[in-house]
Design a protein around this nucleic acid. Structure first.
Lengths: 202, 202
DNA sequence: GGAAGGTTTAACCAGATGGTTAAAAGTAGT
DNA sequence: ACTACTTTTAACCATCTGGTTAAACCTTCC
């Protein structure tokens, strides 16, 4: 029966996602995933042959999510500044909805560097640079963005949105001790981070 | 024999550090730590009664390292800008020498949030804010730093130095694909990040 | 040299863990 | 109702893991 098949598979997938994202590959237990999905442990192996296969399925979907919304960066119709604002607005919103994603990805990437290496090498980074450079020649000149300092800028931009989530445990504690709220902080960050970068470049 | 005692304990500690920093609490194996230290597994339990105790000893030392060098921030004799430059110079240097530290800390903090919460709450954050605010009243006014956007600024500053290491796996791959070197990138970052922040505030 | 102390080892153990198996239960087409 | 098929289950297994035990081995001091 296709309908129920799909349902069970999805229930398992979601339970596995929860478990892996909280405890990582090493910490997660097949029994716990089964319990969470309300099924027998053998059923896990029926749908996903091994823990590794199940993990890979989950990881692939989650890592895809975090790299989404990067595409509009290459869009013709947005100015350089608009791109920066767009990026923080959209990316921080995705992360707000999936706050554990960054920690999870960094975690597993650290555990299995080769894995991520393959994923990254699919993207032709030098081409991205060339495209951006030709698309915003004037801005790049005005802001002194060169091929040499381009990585510095890019990593800075990403750091400002991803790091608060990667270190959410620390940050939300600190924020609370000052009487602020993490979700509030993120909402304001959509503007703050964009202003911060644009100002830094001027 | 005190001399040898100390030596064995240190060898174990170093082996455990290596193992934990590479594989985390969950991934690390007592047998591997013993092998790495060239001793018997039972000897581990003789010196450190359990895996958890051993881990805590390692974690405490490592987490101390990353929070060192934050103290001069409260120093009277440095101007606000000098503090920012000092921070990136010193902090990035520590991280360059211990590149796996950030990933490890974030990792374990994610695994055991309560743990870190206690550690953070030892610091009186509001007091740090007050001290800085009174120390650099003019700068804060000029740069529009208020109690409300202070967390935004602080997290941004830390993000720029820590995140490249937390995501080192990705970043070094990307850098290499553009023909650059991670260590070079970090060396340049000491200046770049400081300029970036100071410009952003202007 | 031998008693007393800490140090190191090999062998062992209970429980957890990922994975398997074979049979029962459900479903659909005829 | 019967067959062919997929789905689900309980029971089981081999291996791994953190931790223990009891005996051997040093060192030191008398």
């Amino acid at each position: 029966m296709v309908a129920k098949d799909r349902q069970t598979e999805e229930i398992i997938f979601e339970a596995a996602t929860e478990e892996f994202i909280h405890k990582g590959m090493d910490g997660a237990r097949m029994q716990e995933i089964a319990d969470r999905a309300g099924i027998n442990k053998a059923l896990l192996h029926y749908y996903y042959r091994s823990k590794e296969k199940l993990f890979n399925a989950v990881f692939e979907k989650l890592s895809g999510q975090i790299f989404k919304k990067f595409a509009p960066v290459l869009d013709d119709n947005l100015s350089f500044e608009e791109k920066i604002r767009f990026f923080y607005r959209e990316h921080l919103e995705i992360l707000r909805k999936n706050p554990r994603l960054p920690a999870f990805i960094l975690n597993e990437m650290n555990r299995n560097p080769e894995w991520m290496k393959k994923l990254i090498l699919k993207i032709d980074i030098p081409k991205v640079w060339e495209r951006l450079e030709s698309l915003h020649k004037e801005d790049f000149e005005r802001y002194h963005i060169t091929r040499d300092n381009f990585p510095q800028l890019m990593t800075s931009i990403v750091a400002l949105s991803v790091f608060p989530f990667a270190a959410r445990g620390i940050f939300s504690t600190i924020l609370e001790s000052m009487g602020y709220d993490f979700d509030d902080y993120i909402e304001k960050r959509k503007i703050y981070a964009a202003d911060f970068v644009i100002n830094a470049l001027r």
